[in-house]
């Protein structure tokens, strides 16, 4: 057992333990924090595999972005510090079953799949190459997914703006109605 394997098992243990804790804890905020640790553990495994770019993106997007978003929505909606109600037995059984099925499916796939050793030349993960690959329109390029995702983000942004604007107009209307109503009442 080399040092590298020990580090891998430590990271895997962190990921798995905090993953299990995040579904078993009854404090919703703790669940979010444990989820964050899971995501950081996965980022650590990427670092271990020397995919630094993916690891950094994992931290930026999941740990720094989505986890913070989740924590914020907890702050804004939940009663802080209160325990969630206990789940019913049938729910527990069914979710355990679902987890088991998913696990079995993944394991079957992993065990059946023969992982071929890649013969493609090793590309250096420099920023230049990543940028070129991202906008490559030829085969094995990522131009299409890149553009599709940017369209999705644009649509989401436009949607946000539309939602925010409509709310504002309604507020204005009600305010105007209020202003009109006051002289009539008096």
């Amino acid at each position: 057992m080399t040092g590298s394997t020990i580090i891998f098992y430590l990271l895997a243990a962190l990921t798995l333990v905090s993953g299990v804790l995040s579904v078993t804890t009854r404090h919703i905020f703790r669940a979010a924090i444990y989820l964050l640790f899971t995501l950081i553990g996965i980022a650590g495994i990427y670092f271990w595999m020397q995919y630094e770019f993916i690891a950094a993106v994992q931290i930026v997007v999941y740990a720094g972005g989505i986890a913070v978003l989740i924590i914020f929505s907890i702050f804004l909606t939940q009663q802080a510090g209160e325990k969630l109600p206990k789940q019913k037995m049938e729910r527990k059984i069914f979710s355990a079953l679902a987890v088991f099925c998913g696990f079995a499916l993944t394991m079957v796939q992993v065990l059946q799949h023969e992982f071929p050793v890649s013969v493609a030349p090793v590309t250096s993960p420099s920023v230049n190459d990543i940028g070129r690959q991202m906008l490559n329109v030829e085969e094995s390029g990522f131009a299409l997914p890149f553009e599709v995702i940017s369209m999705l983000l644009l649509a989401a942004m436009v949607g946000c703006i539309v939602i925010a604007m409509r709310e504002k107009r309604e507020n204005l209307n009600t305010e105007q109605k209020n202003i009109k109503r006051i002289p009539n009442d008096t």
Binding site: E52, G64, P125, V127
Partner: peptide, 18 residues
């Protein structure tokens, strides 16, 4: 001397809010 130095810094610093 990580090859994504600046990205690493901005990624990890986003954790400080946690």
């Amino acid at each position: 001397d990580i090859n994504i130095g600046v990205l690493y810094v901005s990624a990890v610093s986003s954790l400080s809010v946690i």
